[in-house]
Amino acid sequence: MRAMICGYYGQGNGGDEALLVTLLQMLPANVTPVVLSANPALTQERYGVEACPARAWPEIWQQLRRADLFIWGGGSLMQDATSWTSPLYYAGLMALAQSLGLQTLAWGQGIGPLRRPWTCWLTRWVLGRCSEVSVRDQASAALLKQWHIPALLAPDPVWALQAKPGDGSLALPENRVAVNLRRHPSLTPERLQCLGEALRDFQNATQAHICLVPFQKSQDWAMAEALTRHLPGNYQIVYREDPRELMALFQGVRLTIGMRLHSLIMAAAMGSPCFALSYDPKVKQLMQDVGLPGWELQTLPTDALVISETWQAYFQDNQALSQEERQNLRQQATEHRTLLTRLCAN
């Protein structure tokens, strides 16, 4: 059986790469995956799968004609907050697969934000024609219920990702804090300055080693470098391309301060206490679903000392998700596999 897998792959985004690896872990053994990727050579080399250029339409057409199953492989693919062309691309591929009579699966999806009536209509139309749908949060499930589209609700699949330690060449101190920021309009220069000052004060008070963890170089690296200008020392920027090694970085971290959804999921899954800086409804939804503390960036305190003292309290409190809670989330996340098993048995 051949399955074409479509997502935001080959773009250097650690969270989306983690979704791909988790999906590949869950695929039944009788399935040969073909991954649409912006960097097919790297995807093929790193994961040992066949890959196809994500915009090579003649090749995509040929691959679809040979496929049995088409999968949206996790993430917020149908949203128009960043671009109106993105939902058009993903929905177009799904509609093409459906017109060819393939079984189609929207897997581990977070739906929205959908701010335009036509993107909302398009999303409802293609999801209503899918063979199976699974979503990762309550808001997406509620929207599909309103649309009368049946869907499996389970936590984000990355909760079930199997971490893999790196080669051991990087020795990290025990008293460490992980920080992930990404470029976003809500993270204004003034807020970034305030966060940098707060992190400096926090480090002076706790003597913590600061690990700045970019998930996507193009958006996160500059934010990490901006924070280093506030720190007196005892920090490093740690980047991992393999999502399994990226997840392993959070083992033993005393506190994770994260913007990206999957920085928080990976850290929480590895037993690190988390503090969220929400820039998107999906992060706010995670905070509600799992009970993570944090602020929305638009309501971030303007006093760096208030931010620092709040982080210090969570650093000292050290309240991570319990082992039982993490195990339950991992187990529930594996429910996304049931749809794969069912479709691939047909």
Rank of each mutant, 00 (worst) to 15 (best):
S37R: 00
L144V: 02
S263M: 14
C344D: 13
L329G: 01
S83E: 15
P157A: 14
Q62D: 06
H336T: 06
H184I: 08
A268R: 04
M270N: 04
A267Q: 14
A142C: 12
S218D: 15
G48K: 09
F250Y: 15
L170R: 14
V31T: 09
W57E: 12
Y8L: 09
I257A: 07
C130E: 09
S86P: 04
F202E: 08
Q319I: 09
L23P: 08
L19M: 13
L152K: 10
L127M: 07
Q109N: 09
S169N: 15
P58L: 02
L172F: 06
F70Y: 14
C211G: 12
R182K: 14
A51S: 04
L292F: 15
L286C: 11
V290M: 07
A97P: 12
T85M: 01
A267V: 11
D137M: 05
E245W: 03
G110P: 10
P189Q: 14
N13R: 03
A222G: 13
I257C: 05
T123M: 05
I60A: 03
L170F: 09
V135F: 00
D242Y: 03
D156G: 02
L255G: 11
E132N: 05
G252F: 00
V126C: 08
R326C: 01
A224S: 15
A141C: 07
I210P: 08
K164G: 07
G291I: 15
A313K: 12
R2N: 11
Q323G: 06
I5F: 01
A54I: 05
C194A: 12
M78A: 05
R244M: 07
R124W: 11
A269D: 13
M287R: 06
P301A: 01
P155W: 06
V306G: 12
Q236M: 06
A56R: 01
T43I: 04
A41F: 00
N39M: 00
P189Y: 09
E225N: 12
N30C: 02
E241L: 02
V213M: 09
G110F: 05
G166M: 11
Q103L: 03
T341I: 00
Q25W: 07
N180M: 06
L261S: 09
P40F: 00
Y47C: 06
G14H: 00
W57Y: 09
C274V: 08
G168M: 15
T104R: 08
M94Q: 11
Q25E: 15
Q162P: 04
R191W: 01
T228P: 09
R136V: 06
L19Q: 14
A205G: 13
I210G: 08
G196L: 10
Q327F: 05
T228D: 10
L277Y: 00
A18S: 03
V253P: 06
R326W: 03
M259C: 02
M247H: 13
L144C: 02
P150Q: 00
A151D: 06
M223R: 14
V213Y: 10
L192I: 06
